[in-house]
Amino acid sequence: MKPEFQALPLVDNSGSHRFELTVNHATAFMEYGDRDGALALFHTEVPAQLEGQGVGTAIVEKVLAEVERRQRLLIPLCPFVTSYLKRNPEWQRLVAPAYQRWFQG
């Protein structure tokens, strides 16, 4: 994650079932929900004015750290999260067992 995003807080907007990261007055978010005892990550969205700046990576990394802090497993249903996990296999330890096969081979 770029240093300029490290100090920005990840907000759990539980009423809307999404994690939010606000950068320069624009908010990126990741929608989530509980499924089979794990945290399912459904969709990540970065506003157009923030695209290409590393904001998507920052929110994914912050959410993964939060999932780990909560001692939860995750179900990566969002293609952006799945892509990140394939590039960063050290985070695959958080993936629920039934979904581990997506990252094998």
Results as ranks from 00 to 15, higher is better:
K2D: 15
T57E: 10
Q100C: 03
Q104S: 09
L21Y: 05
R18Q: 07
G52S: 01
K2P: 08
D36K: 06
V63W: 02
G52E: 06
F19W: 08
E4R: 07
V60Y: 06
L74A: 04
R69K: 03
F103K: 11
V60D: 08
E45A: 14
F5E: 05
L85K: 10
M1C: 05
T57H: 03
V60N: 10
G52A: 06
Q92Y: 11
M30P: 01
G105I: 12
P76A: 09
L85V: 07
Y32R: 07
T44C: 03
S83N: 12
M1K: 03
N24H: 08
S83E: 13
Y99H: 15
V46Y: 09
V55F: 03
T22W: 01
L21H: 04
A26G: 08
A98H: 03
S14Y: 08
M30C: 06
D36V: 00
P47Y: 05
F29C: 13
I59R: 01
L64Q: 05
A96T: 08
R35T: 08
T22G: 00
R18F: 10
D34E: 14
A48D: 09
Y84N: 04
L41M: 13
Y32I: 05
L41K: 14
G37H: 09
V95T: 10
T57V: 04
V95L: 07
E31R: 14
L74C: 13
G37F: 05
Y84A: 00
P79M: 11
A58C: 03
V67D: 01
G52T: 05
Q104R: 09
H17S: 14
V23P: 01
E45S: 14
L39Q: 15
E20T: 00
Q6P: 11
G105R: 15
L21K: 00
A7Q: 11
V67A: 14
K86E: 11
Q6R: 10
V60P: 02
L39S: 12
N88H: 15
R101H: 13
Q92K: 14
L8D: 07
R87D: 14
Q6W: 07
G15F: 12
H17A: 14
A38D: 04
I59M: 01
D36Q: 10
Y84K: 01
L50N: 00
H17I: 05
R93D: 09
W102K: 14
I75C: 14
V95M: 09
T57K: 11
A96G: 12
G54F: 09
H25S: 13
T44E: 05
R72G: 01
K86D: 07
S14D: 12
Q6N: 12
T57M: 01
E4P: 03
L74P: 11
N24M: 04
W102N: 15
A40L: 13
V81S: 11
E51T: 09
P97I: 02
L41P: 13
Q49M: 06
T22D: 00
Q53E: 12
E4S: 02
Q92W: 11
T44R: 04
L21R: 00
F29Q: 07
G105Y: 12
V46C: 09
R18P: 00
T57W: 02
R72M: 12
